[in-house]
Design a protein around this nucleic acid. Structure first.
Length: 111
DNA sequence: AGAATGACGCTGA
DNA sequence: TTCAGCGCCATTC
């Protein structure tokens, strides 16, 4: 299956997130001109095969917590661990201080 | 084709 | 602040 251009744009945007900072699914979607398609960003990251050089672990939901789920096959736990490794405190249930580490995305669209 | 699903987000109670 | 409900839309059944 050839990866869609949508997935490629998601990956390009995720690659821009600075070390030690966080972005939400909605932010990534808006950044690639797909505002309102936050769920699709989650789909794209799910299709991502690990291990990956992308900082995918820096993408969390707007509620300020790592999206946990049995269907993630443990990648949620890996995400939590890598965030802690970058200095971002994550509680046992995946909650984290989003307001404090939220990334300020570039105002210009990437197109 | 139609229905269910989900790594989401906003609003209101 | 926490929780339920609804809108969203590609993917999967």
């Amino acid at each position: 299956m050839a990866p869609s251009s949508f997935d490629q744009r998601v990956y390009a945007a995720v690659a821009l997130i600075p070390h030690g900072q966080l972005a939400t699914y909605g932010q990534i979607a808006a950044l690639i001109g797909a505002s309102g398609c936050a769920r699709q960003v989650g789909w794209a990251l799910r299709r991502l095969q690990l291990p990956s050089p992308l900082p995918w672990h820096r993408v969390v939901n707007a509620k300020g917590q790592v999206s946990m789920g049995i269907n993630r096959e443990g990648s949620d736990w890996i995400q939590r661990q890598r965030l802690i490794a970058e200095g971002i405190p994550v509680s046992w249930d995946g909650r984290l201080p989003l307001r404090r580490y939220l990334w300020s995305p570039p105002p210009l669209p990437l197109a």
